[in-house]
Design a binder for these strands. Structure first.
Lengths: 217, 217
DNA sequence: CAGCATCCGCTTTGATACTG
DNA sequence: CAGTATCAAAGCGGATGCTG
């Protein structure tokens, strides 16, 4: 992109990361850590492959992304955020929080990848019973399962399937999110195609971080 | 801009404010509150007038900006952020903080407007002697003077000249910022064209909010 | 297959001119 | 003052081809 040519910190930031796709590449790397080119392309449906290559070069030049040659037997290029790139987290979280209300309308033509939920869940959920032993709730939605881990007062999101989840929640993403946020109860969620297997108490363990209405999405 | 078409809060945000110029328009409205079309164009050097009109329409449709018809004798259109637009402040501040280190290299071809300093100064300065009576320091740089007001532990930036400033600091923007942050003392700053009039104690009253090195810019 | 580069049609942007 | 109109140039999206 052409520089704004302004002596202003905001404009300087946008000179580096204001291009189309740039911040979504950062999102992918924040959620998934080191990624192959192919993983990035998969997580950014619709990006033209030459643009992905261009953006990665630009982000590398801006010290946001670095490229690592993984040693054999992997023997592939991995892309990763630099420390400077990690410092974009407040920006990404700001956009995430601002965008949550926009998720209330579900567009059936939108693409979806389950790992995109990671940030939103981490930001809006909390462990409601910090003193009890940790639990894992698997969400089956979108392309692959993800796992909400609650323990010690913290919420973490795993992108690898848990070996022994305490509960498994299956259904469309928006309904699942409403269930884990406690905005929709399980019986009411059934009509949206949500089903549950396992110990129902894990659903009470995980709840909204803020009053349910404020970050409804 | 074409929608990313992703069921993701970050992508949804960028669908609305990810266009070129959009966040800079938000910046202008955050710094200056209600603005005329002409003021916006002045604060966004290089924007094509048709683009400004387009962006304002898009931001209005996104409930970020609203348009007010000022009554006579003003009789002009004013643009203002909606409450939803105001909620972009964490995003803007995130970009601002991330961009501060980029300001260490000064590009002589960059345009400059003194009101762009408002956010950066507010974010990085603090009142070093909260118990003393308020002071005002005028900065003469760029297109028009701005005023740093320190009092009650708070820092505020005024875009209207103070009627009776306690000190007046004149010079290039980068050097002035370094002086008020205490990274450069007045005698050393003279070689960069900085001069001062008034009560020197006001310079000690205003200082960096964080350790000087961390947000050096 | 992973990681690009090239080509082409379309859309967006930038610069300028013009208008109520 | 607050835009619209026009047009060339740049950027983007999609398809395809190349290389280790």
């Amino acid at each position: 992109m052409r520089s704004y040519g302004e002596h202003c910190a905001i404009a300087k930031s946008l000179d580096l990361i204001g291009d189309r796709w740039s911040l979504l590449i950062v999102r992918e790397l924040m959620i998934r850590d080191a990624c192959r080119y192919t993983d990035l392309k998969y997580g950014l449906p619709g990006i033209a492959t030459n643009l992905l290559a261009d953006r990665l070069r630009e982000l590398e030049a801006a010290d946001v992304v670095k490229r690592e040659e993984a040693p054999p037997p992997v023997a592939t290029t991995l892309f990763r955020l630099t420390p400077r790139g990690e410092e974009l987290r407040p920006v990404i979280n700001g956009l995430l929080r601002w965008g949550l209300p926009l998720m209330r309308v579900e567009n059936p033509t939108d693409t979806f990848r389950s790992h995109w939920l990671a940030g939103a869940l981490e930001q809006t959920l909390s462990d409601q019973r910090p003193d009890e032993p940790p639990v894992a709730l698997e969400l089956r939605t979108g392309d692959r399962p993800i796992v909400i881990e609650a323990g010690g007062g913290e919420i973490g999101i795993g992108l690898q399937p848990a070996e022994q989840p305490d509960g498994i929640l299956t259904g469309p993403p928006k309904a699942l999110v409403e269930v884990v946020r406690g905005m929709l109860d399980l019986s009411a969620a059934e009509e949206f195609g949500v089903s549950f297997e396992g110990d129902r108490s894990v659903l009470g363990r995980i709840g909204p971080r803020e009053p349910a209405g404020s970050v409804a999405g």
